[in-house]
Write a protein that binds this DNA or RNA. Structure first.
Length: 436
RNA sequence: GUGGGCGUAGCUCAGUUGGCAGAGCUCCGGGUUGUGGCCUCGGCGGUCGCGGGUUCAAGUCCCGUCGCUCACCCCA
């Protein structure tokens, strides 16, 4: 048997209804904040990611699905969305004109990593990107938007971690100080020794207990922020505080992609093990220019949908909708039921029936499993009289002062509230009940 | 890329010192010849991940390989 390739999985029902629910909520909230959807290719020129994400990052260095196409051009399956969004914005001139441009996109990303809990080679992100405004109010708004989505999804325990990475000027000064600090320290792990030369900022991010100890009194970026960046960050935090957002300043939080400037944030959730970041984002004012575009301030975030689904309650997104199951006995009745089935659907009533001519008992079992609100029984007897039996499934609610009406079946069983309904009125009646 | 755990029915898992491949759930049918769930009886369903080796005999022991999983790393 051919199996799905490593790190790539099938999302099956009923799980998919939870995904739809998450995406629907995200779309609603994006709409409230004035965002519109952009849909992008999954494949881009390799160069786009090399220049945006950073040639020294792990993502570009060893995690991309890169291959030459038939013409020999180097293509890459997108490992993240921001670079593509910005590329599309610049290519289509969406950045022209005053004011903020707000876009969201969602879909699969690809990274060649060793799979584990909450980490797949094809994984899904919900991305938010806002362009053209450098105001700290926008930073705050984007974070509020993110928390709004997560809250509506009933994400339980979550923490917002936040830091400022400064502008390129601040980063130059900080990297110099960090370099100086690291030069005098011995015993850093292999990775950190390498990072010391390539990207000293990321040494801060090291999870090694030993490195953490060494880095205890390392310089922090905050002390190297220029007055503008300091003021910007202070204002972002002030707004968050005013909106009652509980945040945790994390002086050592950095982002894995080179293009981040100023505000950087992350939302971590309980119950995910080591891969606990459910969303991450920040400002990337320098990205546009790195791609050869104009100066274009920007901020955004990505939600890791796979991880999010992992921690969300398992019973969400499964609304029990009104549904009818037609059970037919005999060929003539089946023909009539098939017509009624389509008529119900035309009236926007969810309806199913058995197409194999199974026994009534089997059809009732199917009706039960399908979650039907009503089973409609049509046999030759009913057909002759132009009627159908309408049988409520599951719990039935009574009107005031009314008790159940009992019907005795040929077998001696007694069922509640089974009605006889004229076939010509059947679909209209059910459509009316569906709207109740 | 590195390390640990695990691969037996659609699912969850038993399987003794190597000796006829099992259970529960699901699914299908009967009991109820025209009424779901509960009960009861029966049935379908397996290249024991794959390849090699040892042995009279391998799900079981050995080697290899693939996959899953958790962690490192990295990140959403």
């Amino acid at each position: 048997m051919i199996k799905a390739i490593r790190g790539m999985r099938d999302l099956l029902p009923p799980e998919t209804s939870r995904w739809q629910w998450v995406e629907q909520v995200a779309r609603e909230v994006f709409g409230l904040y004035g965002y519109r959807e952009i849909r992008l290719p999954l494949l881009e020129r390799t160069e786009l990611f090399a220049r945006s994400i950073g040639a020294d990052t792990d993502i570009v260095g060893k995690e991309m699905y890169t291959f030459p196409d038939r013409k020999g051009d180097s293509l890459t399956l997108r490992p993240e969305a921001t670079a593509s969004v910005l590329r599309a914005v610049l290519e289509n001139g969406l950045d022209k004109g005053a004011g903020v441009k707000k876009l969201y996109t969602l879909g699969p990303m690809f990274r060649y990593e060793r799979p584990q809990k909450g980490r797949y080679r094809q994984f899904y992100q919900i991305n938010c990107e806002a362009f053209g405004v450098d105001a700290p109010e926008l930073d705050a708004e984007v974070i509020l938007l993110l928390l709004d989505i997560l809250t509506r999804l009933k994400l339980g325990e979550m923490r917002l971690l936040i830091n400022s990475l400064g502008c390129p000027d601040c980063q130059v000064k900080f990297k110099a100080a960090m370099g100086l600090f690291l030069i005098s320290r011995e015993g850093l792990c292999e990775d950190c020794q390498r990072r010391r030369d390539t990207n000293p900022l990321r040494v801060l991010d090291c999870k090694s207990v030993h490195c953490k100890e060494i880095l205890k009194d390392a310089p922090v970026i905050r002390d190297y922020l220029c007055p503008d960046c300091t003021a910007h960050f202070a204002r972002v935090l002030a707004w968050l505080k005013r909106f009652g957002v509980a945040y945790e300043e994390q002086p050592k939080l950095v982002r894995g992609l080179d293009y981040y400037t100023r505000t950087a944030f992350e939302v971590v959730a309980a119950g995910l093990g080591a891969q606990d970041a459910v969303a991450g984002g920040g400002r990337y004012n320098g990205l546009s220019q790195a791609l050869g575009g104009p100066l274009l301030p920007a901020i955004g975030f990505a939600i890791g949908e796979d991880r999010l689904l992992e921690v969300l309650p398992k019973d969400l997104g499964q609304e029990n909708q009104f549904k009818v199951f037609l059970a037919a006995l005999g060929e003539a009745a089946r023909d009539r039921a098939f017509h009624l089935l389509q008529e119900l659907r035309q009236r926007r009533v969810a309806a199913e029936m058995d197409l194999e001519g199974r026994s009534l008992k089997a059809q009732m079992t199917q009706a039960d499993r399908s979650g039907a609100t009503y089973a409609v029984i049509i046999g030759d007897r009913e057909l002759e009289q132009g009627e159908a039996l309408v049988r409520p499934m599951r719990a039935f609610s009574y009107k005031k002062g009314e008790g159940p009406k009992l019907t005795e079946l040929p077998s001696g069983r007694i069922v509640e509230n089974q009605e006889r309904v004229a076939l010509k009125d059947l679909t209209a009646l059910l459509a009316a009940r569906a709207r109740e």
